[in-house]
Each structure stands twice: as structure tokens, then as C-alpha cells.
């Protein structure tokens, strides 16, 4: 395995999920759920679990990163400080900050801990990334709305490592409010079980997955067939976002990407039907490329005919639906590729 040539990582919220997960396809694991303090046994709250979890990942041969809350108020900060303290004691490889206040805390109180900037931090510009670099950040996940062209430019101009989401449901925002709590009585189910259910918001063919205090894209971002381009462009840090997925998804999707990335780096990449079959098994709504090709996030651009697989339904009849028509290809996209909405 090319353990040194690239990094494939994912996010795991708690000990239960960690112990149920096969970490073999991964090089690194982010521990902690950035959405909600009440998420069941969140590593960010259960610090004994965090300690054990870090050791478990290490024993599995993975680097370990601590993720932190996406939108912390003042009263979150003491607990974040405690969690980073435990992680630092255990020699965690980095802490992911989605928030300027956490970046500043890391810089001033934990200067030896490398900082990764997460996708909620709103890094849109080279200058923004550079500012965070000045505060000790070594890696940045740019905002999801940026195109590959822009991300490549950011990596070149700042010299920072850039991490990108290659597969999984893309976060579309963070909320103060969990509307799932409104259903506790009707569903006979309470927090923290609610947000772990299979919950989608749908309008026609469009879907978003609810995770309580935020939503994820219903379609999974999939960059499998574009991996040669990503590697050629110099990207080496890849995330499979499995925070809301089951262990089988976490294992199977990453195994496909691991194999594919190794083939890319060995110069022998060829898309295999077996990979798509595996991806299809875990795709509920369909695939998209996020914003990587300078388009709306829900489009799939590529040659894979079955990219629209997953559940299907009639086109939406609302105004929102009519606005979703396929738009012209970005100048950044090879005109030979197909758009599958």
C-alpha cells in the first residue's frame, strides 16, 4: 500500500462507530462530531473515550486528528480546550478547527499541535488561507463552493496542504437549531437517537440529508473517475465523508478509493465496474461533483453513465425544481465530459 504517497481519511463521531468500523482502508481518522454537542457520546464530550479512541486508531496504523465544533459559542470553549488538552497529551497528529476562535486557542495555548482548517471555516480566498497559515495552520479544506481551479490556485499560492472531499455527503450548512426535536413526541424517539436515523428532506428528485443541526447534500459527492486529474494537480489529502454513514459505507467506499488511488499513482488507473457496483450499493440518492467544476453542487459531470443511480422520482413541479435545469459546462471542464443531472 502507498501509505506515504497520499492520505485517505474520514470522520467518526463516537466510540461505538469507531469500534464498528474497519479502518484498514484509511490513513487517518478525524475523531469528533462538529455539528452538535449532544450527539451521542461525541468524542469531543466523552474525553475518556477520546483517549481510548486515539490509541485505537494508532494501533490500527492510522494518524489521528481531533475535529472540533463548527460554530462554537463562548460556553463551548472550555470543553473544546479540555478535549484538545487530552488530544495533545495523547500526541494527536493535528486538530481540525472550523472556527477562528479555535484556531487562536490552538495557536496560543497548544502551539505544538498542528492545525487543520475544516470546511466550515469559510476559506474562500488565497489571502484567507494565508492568514490562517500565519496562525500556524498546515492544512486547509477550502469552502465547498470553490472549484478545483480555485483550490489548485490556493494550494500553489499559499504552499499549504489542501484537503478535499472526494466522496460522501457534502455539508451544506450549520444550524443553532435541531428541528428534529419537534418530532420527539410523534416518533417516540428522543435526542440523541433522532439524528442517527435515516432522514432525508426531499423535493422531487432533490434531497438533503438531515443531521439535526445542519443538512448534508442528499447526493454523494463522487470524484472517483476524476482521481487522475486530482493527483496530477498535486492533491494528496482526500476525505471520504462518512460522518452520517454506517460502517459498511465507511469501509467499502474507502476501499474503492484506496485501490483507485494506488492505481493512479502506479500509472495503471482504469475504472472498474466492480468499483461502481460497490459505490452504487451505498448510494441512496445519486452522485454529484459538488462545486469542483464551477457548477451548482448537485450536478454530476463525468463519463460514468450510471452516475445518476440511486432512488429516482419525478422531476419537481415547483419553482425550485424548474430552476434546477442543467447549466452550461464550466470553462474548467473538459467539453468531452457529460453532465448528468
Amino acid at each position: 500500500m502507498n501509505r506515504e504517497l497520499f492520505e485517505l481519511n474520514t470522520t467518526i463521531s463516537n466510540m461505538k462507530d469507531l469500534m464498528a468500523s474497519d479502518l484498514d482502508p484509511y490513513d487517518a481518522i478525524y475523531l469528533g462530531n462538529p455539528f452538535c454537542r449532544d450527539y451521542e457520546a461525541n468524542f469531543l464530550e466523552e474525553l475518556d473515550d477520546l483517549r481510548v479512541g486515539i490509541r485505537h486508531c494508532r494501533e490500527a496504523g492510522c494518524k489521528v486528528y481531533l475535529s472540533t465544533y463548527a460554530a462554537p459559542r463562548n460556553y463551548f470553549m472550555p470543553q473544546i480546550r479540555r478535549a484538545i488538552g487530552v488530544a495533545a497529551e495523547e500526541g494527536v497528529d493535528a486538530v481540525e478547527a472550523h472556527n477562528l476562535g479555535v484556531v487562536r486557542m490552538l495557536r496560543t495555548e497548544f502551539p505544538a499541535v498542528p492545525i487543520h482548517i475544516g470546511g466550515f471555516a469559510n476559506v474562500y480566498t488565497d489571502t484567507g488561507a494565508a492568514v490562517l497559515g500565519d496562525y500556524g495552520s498546515v492544512r486547509v479544506t477550502p469552502n465547498y463552493e470553490l472549484s478545483l481551479e480555485e483550490i489548485e490556485g490556493m494550494a500553489k499560492s499559499t504552499g499549504l496542504h489542501v484537503e478535499i472531499l472526494v466522496h460522501g455527503k457534502m455539508p451544506l450548512g450549520i444550524s443553532d437549531y435541531c428541528f428534529l426535536l419537534e418530532y420527539e413526541k410523534d416518533w417516540g424517539m428522543k435526542c440523541p437517537d433522532l439524528c442517527q436515523q435515516d432522514l432525508f428532506l426531499r423535493q422531487g428528485e432533490w434531497a438533503m440529508k438531515s443531521v439535526g443541526k445542519g443538512v448534508l447534500s442528499g447526493r454523494d459527492v463522487c470524484m472517483l473517475e476524476h482521481l487522475p486529474h486530482l493527483v496530477a494537480a498535486g492533491f494528496r489529502f482526500f476525505r471520504v465523508e462518512s460522518i452520517s454513514e454506517d460502517p459498511a459505507y465507511r469501509r467499502d467506499v474507502a476501499a474503492v478509493y484506496r485501490e483507485a488511488l494506488e492505481e493512479v499513482l502506479n500509472g495503471a488507473f482504469q475504472l472498474r465496474e466492480g468499483w461502481w457496483e460497490k459505490i452504487q450499493t451505498h448510494t441512496k440518492v445519486g452522485l454529484c461533483n459538488g462545486f469542483y467544476f464551477g457548477q451548482s453542487g448537485q450536478l454530476y459531470i463525468g463519463n460514468q453513465q450510471s452516475a445518476g443511480f440511486g432512488e429516482t422520482s419525478a422531476r419537481p413541479s415547483t419553482e425550485l425544481g424548474r430552476m434546477s435545469s442543467v447549466e452550461p459546462l464550466s470553462r474548467a471542464v473538459n467539453n468531452q465530459l457529460r453532465v448528468i443531472s
Partner: peptide, 19 residues
């Protein structure tokens, strides 16, 4: 207006359409 997603932390609209 306190929307569902915090101000400055919402990418729902562009997920559906950009122009």
C-alpha cells in the same frame, strides 16, 4: 432573520443552482 443555517454558513442555494 435567524434562518435555519447560520448567516455565512449556508451553501444550500448554490448547491441547487448558481448563475
Amino acid at each position: 432573520v435567524d434562518e435555519f443555517h447560520q448567516l455565512g454558513k449556508c451553501w444550500m442555494p448554490s448547491f441547487y443552482r448558481t448563475n
